[in-house]
Design a protein around this nucleic acid. Structure first.
Lengths: 203, 203, 203, 203
DNA sequence: CATGAATGAGATTTCATTCAT
DNA sequence: GATGAATGAAATCTCATTCAT
């Protein structure tokens, strides 16, 4: 009724289309996905998709950007607790590791990474985002080092390695996200990662 | 002319088609690649492709299997030197790390992984191969542990982590294989990986 | 604001739409032209076009009628001087011929004829207008005949032939209005036409 | 069966497609015509059309070129008799005029000209063909002038004018090919044209 | 009356796949 | 066994037209 409502309606529809698009792209891959199916999933007619997003490529870009931002937000939130890790640094790192792995192994995360890998050659801008997660983690590690809680010379490298230890094993363990990993296994991976990390960087 | 030659000719043609297929799939992705282009790249007519490999899906499977086996072979060969590491374990590990990273960052390797990631949802059998590289490395680490050169409780986990430390950083550093990484950077990553690994697992 | 102004505004808007429509139809042809573009050119929204003119076909009809009337008016005005040709009939005919050819070769004239030719099959009413120009010219020639200035038995035929001699050569000379014709060439054609015409019909 | 037959089959199919294309384009215009309908008219599947002619634009170009060449051939043949006009030049000219007008007023001729006019803006190469008919006629008139049968200073201009006198009146008389013209009317136009032409150029 | 948004229908084009030779 | 030709099916995108405001 009000302008605001109308505006929201428009924005909502755009968001609905983007969400539907990501769902379908995740299921079928970029090329196999057809705009028709995305429109159906969003509950609109095909031309409406073209009215809001210009063409399939742009639709993909926007849907990926959206999904990517969402995941990045959650990941950054997951490392926030390290601002106040309490007495037990190991426990704090394991908790963060658990949470990161949980996010990393969500179905949508795998789908996002699969699409990213698959299409980065044709959509190079998708791979260009700076890795905010590594940076945020490097910030924490630098602080810990200053506080004498860790002995880290190159915080960026340490952050990279922390994340690599966490997520690296999951490709093979879940057959690239095809098989689900039990929570216990995730926790075990997180603990191993933290153990190795602390063995290397404990002060 | 002879049966043997004819047979070889047949096999050669099949191999040529598979090689061409991988090249084209790597360039375009599974869906974007069209059989016509593969046939052209292989220098044969389209129906010949269908005579040798039944349909596009099978063509993809076989081409991926072929390329995958090739890469796996090279990776396994790269860890062979660890059977006789000499006195300086660190140097041996760095050398192996260098070689593994080099292989990992070849254009064809990225392409293979991109295709794997992209299509594992529709071709689940592609992701099912046991990870021979991790196993081979775990074998070496187990030996080192027995020989007192390392202190490794779970060789599989240690191998996973060694590989994660090596390759994990490369996704972001090369924008998923889109940007080339200078050899010096590769070496630096290998050294960091080995340093962290040995800090954690030195006996 | 006032009724009169509003009414004028309405008429003006209709005229603006028709003018824009002709411009776009001339540029793109009937089918290629899209209502969206016409609306843009007219500076109104698409439904406004539908409010004023019912559908695309009617829009075309009206735009063509408008443009056609405009051109016809100019052509009729161009032969008016023959009501008072002065002493030198040849000079008067050449002057009229020059002006007619000039109008005939305007960009908009070519566009109009192109659209007429192109769409007369689907809009037969467009081709049904009596040829007022031929009639007007026939009237003049009949007068000249009565006055002993010409020897014309069938004024309609003479008028047809005068116009044919003028405009017939232009299709090929301008590649159907695609290439511009220099003014000198136009004048030369007009002179040749008048020469032949007078050779045949001089009293 | 034989290679030759196979080859003919291919050529025949291409010709069939081009003929069907011209028929449909003539009926519907370039944009309204759809490839689907052309394929149906030709009795082949839609992709076959795309196999032989690359896209709709090229299909149009080739179909127009073909039809144009056909008509041009007939027109040139129609003026051949003027190589040996016999004693009665007037009669010969009228005969040729009759035949030219007959060809000019065939349904396919009107269709060709309509398409040419309609699309010359988007397919400029279609309008670029030299006018062989005018040239051939100019050649005949030049001969007649040398032989003292005519008094023609500029044969090209005379030829242009002869054709203009013939065909110029037909646009209006047939409502641009929409109405059929009775043979008697055609003959009358031809006679008037020849009368005027000879009045002007008789030696 | 003017308009932003939505849509049903349909156009061009591509591609995996199969015959017939 | 290899190939030129043909095709059924489907995908992207456009456009005339209509609601609801």
């Amino acid at each position: 009724m009000s302008v605001k409502t109308a505006s929201h309606g428009r924005i909502d529809k755009r968001q609905a289309i983007l969400a539907a698009a990501f769902t379908v792209f995740a299921r079928q891959g970029y090329s196999q996905a057809c705009v028709q199916e995305i429109a159906q999933e969003a509950g609109v007619a095909k031309p409406t998709v073209y009215n809001h997003l210009n063409d399939k490529e742009n639709l993909f870009r926007e849907a990926m950007t959206e999904a990517s931002a969402e995941l990045t937000g959650a990941l950054l939130a997951a490392v926030e607790p390290l601002r106040d890790p309490g007495d037990d640094l190991r426990a704090a790192l394991v908790a963060v590791g658990d949470r990161l792995l949980e996010l990393y192994c969500e179905e949508r995360s795998w789908a996002l990474r699969r699409l990213l890998y698959a299409e980065v050659a044709r959509f190079p801008e998708l791979g260009c985002g700076v890795d905010k997660l590594t940076e945020a983690l490097a910030d924490r590690f630098a602080r810990f080092s200053l506080q004498g809680k860790l002995d880290v010379q190159e915080p960026e490298v340490a952050a990279e390695q922390f994340l690599a230890l966490l997520t690296g094993p999951m490709d093979n363990r879940t057959a690239f996200g095809t098989r689900p990993a039990p929570a216990a296994e995730l926790h075990s991976v997180a603990e191993s990662a933290v153990r190795t990390f602390l063995s290397a960087f404990a002060s």
